[in-house]
Each structure stands twice: as C-alpha cells, then as structure tokens.
Amino acid sequence: MRHDDSANTTDDPKLALVRQRRRVIRRTQLLSVRASRTLLESMIAADVIVLATPVYFFGKCAQLKTVIDRTVARYTAIANKEFYFIVTAAVGSKRPLERTIEGLRGFTSCLTGAKEKGIVYGTGAWEVGDILSRPAFEEAYEMGKSV
C-alpha cells in the first residue's frame, strides 16, 4: 500500500510536520533538477563559458563542482566552447592556485573542442570587497570586454 502524504489520517502535529517537510524536500529536489537542466542547456547553447570560483584549501568550491558534475549526462554536447577561468583566494601568489586551474582543465579536457582563452587570478582577496582593489578586478573586466 502506498503512503500518501496528502491524506490526513491523524491529527498528530509531529506527523503533520514530517509530511510538510517531505513536500518541501520534494519541491526542492524538483526545482534543483529543473535548474540543473536549465544550466546545462545554457552551457550547451553558449559560445563562451566562464568558470569562476573562490578557492578554499586550494580547490574549487562545492557549488562549481556540483555544476560540473551535473553536466555528466550530456557533457558531449558541450562542444567547441571557449572557456575563461576566474579564481579568487586569500593567498598572495598565483602558484598555489594552479591546482584549482588544473582541476578546471580536467573538466574541459573531457569536452570536444574546448579552448582555454584566459585566466584571472584574484589573489589577496580575503575580506568581502578586497578584490575591488586588486589588479584581477580590472583584468576580469578587460577580459570580458574582449569576448
């Protein structure tokens, strides 16, 4: 017998709360699937893709990792794209950020015809707004104008 959350067979407030949470989780999962499809379709349709991430402990953020992971179903359709990478971190030099860049290249190396067109290293950005006074801010702006 199927359990139906919409049937209210009891007045137990705890059970009602569990049912409400299940409905919220289902809606959230549905929205997540729709957003993933929309993002994937946008990546397939785009000529240029910018992969940008703050760098924590020398790796890309979880949100970008999730975006990349969700392309697996149709990654072969993300073909012949130009890629730009933007990374920001508190460290003051570019060298430690190369691990992150290599991780992004690992993704693009799986894509047919992917071309790396530019990288912006936003070093020395620890506090909110720090990047505004760094050369990377202007570099990203100029790189965007050239696309």
Rank of each mutant, 00 (worst) to 15 (best):
R2C: 00
H3C: 08
D4Y: 05
S6H: 12
A7M: 12
T10I: 05
T10C: 10
D11E: 08
L15M: 15
A16Y: 05
R21T: 12
R22Y: 13
R23S: 15
R23T: 15
V24I: 15
I25A: 10
T28A: 11
Q29F: 04
L31G: 06
A35P: 03
R37H: 11
R37N: 13
T38P: 00
E41C: 06
S42Y: 05
M43S: 04
I44R: 02
A45M: 05
A45T: 06
D47W: 00
D47P: 00
V50A: 09
V50T: 06
V50W: 04
L51Y: 06
T53V: 14
Y56E: 11
Y56Q: 12
F58Q: 09
K60C: 12
C61K: 10
Q63I: 13
T66I: 02
I68M: 11
T71H: 03
Y75V: 08
N80Q: 10
K81A: 05
K81F: 07
F83A: 01
I86P: 04
A89L: 10
V91A: 02
V91F: 05
V91N: 06
V91W: 04
R95E: 12
R95M: 08
R95C: 01
R99M: 13
T100G: 05
G103W: 08
R105T: 08
R105I: 04
G106H: 08
G106W: 06
F107P: 00
K115S: 09
I119E: 04
G122N: 02
T123S: 13
G124V: 10
A125L: 02
E127V: 05
G129W: 01
G129L: 06
D130P: 01
I131M: 04
L132N: 07
E142I: 12
E142C: 10
E142Y: 09
G144Y: 09
